[in-house]
Design a protein around this nucleic acid. Sequence first.
DNA 1: TTGAAAGCGCTAACAT
DNA 2: ATGTTAGCGCTTTCAA
Lengths: 339, 339
Amino acid sequence: MSSTYKKDAHKKMNISDIAKALELSTTTISRAISGKGRIGEATRERVWAYIRENDYRPNIIAKSLAQSKTFNIGVVLPADQNLTETPFFQKCLLGITEMAASNDYDVVVTTTTETDITLLQRIVENHKVDGVVLTRTLVNDFPAKYLEEKNIPFVAIGTTDDEKVIQIDNNHRSGCKELTTLLLNSGMQSIGLLCGDQNHVVNQERYQGYIEAFRDKELSIKEELIFSNVTNKAFVEKAVESLMEDHVECILCMDDLICSRAIYKLMEDHVSIPNQVKVASFYNSAFLESHNPQITALDFDVKEVGAVAAKNLMELISGKEVQKKTLLDYSIILKASTK
Amino acid sequence: MSSTYKKDAHKKMNISDIAKALELSTTTISRAISGKGRIGEATRERVWAYIRENDYRPNIIAKSLAQSKTFNIGVVLPADQNLTETPFFQKCLLGITEMAASNDYDVVVTTTTETDITLLQRIVENHKVDGVVLTRTLVNDFPAKYLEEKNIPFVAIGTTDDEKVIQIDNNHRSGCKELTTLLLNSGMQSIGLLCGDQNHVVNQERYQGYIEAFRDKELSIKEELIFSNVTNKAFVEKAVESLMEDHVECILCMDDLICSRAIYKLMEDHVSIPNQVKVASFYNSAFLESHNPQITALDFDVKEVGAVAAKNLMELISGKEVQKKTLLDYSIILKASTK
DNA sequence: TTGAAAGCGCTAACAT
DNA sequence: ATGTTAGCGCTTTCAA
């Protein structure tokens, strides 16, 4: 069984069909549609009536060509395997898409890895987008550098040293600091930290939050309790073992995948949460929700960060002033795992 | 701190700039680029040399207008909250994006819910895409019906009754049947089933696979062991309790979120896997990987299914014949949870 | 093998 | 308030 697609025979209506039908000029139709320029209320209504009646849709491509604008924003997703496992980017994309649509923009997605930006170059150099949203920031940020160099409007979801970049981020640093402080205030002294990929700025921020919490209380930081780049199951297991040997009171995990792995490891070793060790995560997702006891975590409105990023980008594109850095809030969800 | 974007002053090169520089006509340049139509090898090479040297990029928008093609494919993602938690769609999207790019297409994403297809209508009626990939099928498939009615080329990832729809799917039914059969062969008799949303065809397929396994062995199906629409934590917990009261030997979960919830519930109740009850999932993801014992599951190459869908759609768009139904393979990963 | 010219559908100066 | 006209950058028929 197979199938072929046959094009519709009947041609689409265009602006000059309307002009003819209504005995007006195409300019007038254009003005009636866009609302720009002077036009009589009567003719305006007449045009709209015709449009509604005949279900006319303007050809965006032609508009694009005339205005040298695509009305598309590009969204760059990471192609790395282990990031497709996290819901962050998908939620972000949802927020971006909705905000874009409500401003009459559409979303073209593409992917990059930390070193390969050819697919980003594709959409940019083919003039497919008016601007770009980067959904994460890197310590050595190739995509950002490329867009800067090409002078393409873009915003980044995340934080970066590069002051020229417009950034939208949840306040990870502050959230992690507050959560850590809360734990320290409850009398704990020794808190282990399992960090994610250190080339991702977000993980650096989370790390700084942890450090600052200790600094503010003038507590010494024990390097042996901090594990960086705990990016796979084996690393998590080794780190957890080591932390338990050091008799930490609490294990902080930078994201929910690390946390989920840590919890399983603890269960396997018959370590009871929170009796023998407490656990908290810097990122909350459905995969932690089912655990008993429930896990204390930071919660971010990821869809919102996407929406704000899209909004900022579209304003940037339209020449408006845009805030250099937007920090969104977080909430701390205290649950039984740290009681 | 704020920032404004300033447009680059220097105008982009176009086809007639090249024509002038090389003292040729725009037609010739166009032919040299596209490779269509007769053209002398010498001039052809001369044009390409110039293009390479000056890093010229054709304006796709103009090409689109001239050819009435966008070179975009639309991808429809579900906007439902609990689906953003699963990695399926993101992986799919990755496959689609890569395949599209390698055929000089780009990907415009949009979202729908089970009842609201306005954002899909947007990209279709604004002529933003040449065709559409639906990333799931529904029992009552509004998006598919809409696209059919509008006569837009589209393919669906998933299975559907509608014979006119071009479908690409992993062989869920067969996979689930094989896994269930395997369990039955190992001597189990009573196997519980926790089903996902029954409006998603994929869950119907999985259900059928389970049923067929029993039928083939002429075993009776106990309705009380099958729970449908187990779409939240509370439902999973109730179902698991009920199954344990019925002393099932194994619990089959339709996806990894259900499975993860079921496992936590079992742990909470101090039920040992696989000693007291065995567990298997119809979908494998990183969130199950950490569990000890590891969980038996079906594994699908999701990126591949996306890639094939994109390929089929692009062939459909270009008027080629396309297979009505493509079924991709699966693998069964047997782990300790069913030993 | 190459070129002239019309056209894709819309916008925007510049008239009137 | 409305119309004329010249593009936007590329493709494509038709002619040379």
